[in-house]
């Protein structure tokens, strides 16, 4: 089972790196989600893929069956998924906000925090008017 898992992790990381290198925040966010998935698969693989039955203790028993899966990676991954989901949701809200306030989702077009020229930082420029979304405009 290790080889297909390792290959899947490799493909996911490759895709994640490709997306993270894009100069466009929503794509970078997709890259982060892919990278998180790769990390979760890595944890699953690190916990040894073996048993396929759920690690639940049946009624009247004191321990789960011998071929039960390792529960710890599952607990870790569940936690990591919840956290990753929360972070991605927050980042998405921030990107939406950035599009409304800064008018762009491309980091190299944003210059509010670090003005390009001039040592003296000017007061922040007033927010640009909301550009009409492309879909409605077409």
């Amino acid at each position: 089972m290790e080889l297909p898992f390792a290959l899947a992790i490799g493909v996911l990381v490759a895709g994640a790196v490709y997306m993270l290198l894009a100069r466009d925040l929503p794509r970078m966010l997709v890259g982060f989600v892919l990278l998180g998935t790769a990390a979760n698969l890595l944890i699953l693989l690190a916990g040894r893929v073996g048993g396929m039955t759920p690690p639940l203790v049946a009624a009247g028993m004191a321990a789960p069956g011998a071929d039960a899966a390792n529960p710890l990676p599952q607990a870790l991954i569940l936690t990591a998924i919840v956290i990753g989901f929360g972070l991605a949701a927050f980042a998405l809200m921030l990107i939406v906000k950035a599009r409304a306030v800064l008018g762009t989702v491309r980091p190299d077009e944003m210059a509010a925090a670090e003005p390009r020229a001039g040592a003296v930082s000017s007061p922040p420029t007033p927010p640009r008017a909301l550009p009409p979304p492309r879909r409605e405009a077409a």
Binding site: L25, A39, I43, L45, A91, L94
Partner: peptide, 26 residues
């Protein structure tokens, strides 16, 4: 606007940083 711009830089780098932490844990 400056905070959202700065915040995005902070968020994006830290998202990747924490994923590296998770991989190291694995």
């Amino acid at each position: 606007p400056a905070q959202i711009d700065g915040g995005l830089r902070y968020v994006m780098l830290n998202l990747v940083g924490t994923t590296f932490f998770l991989m190291a844990v694995g």
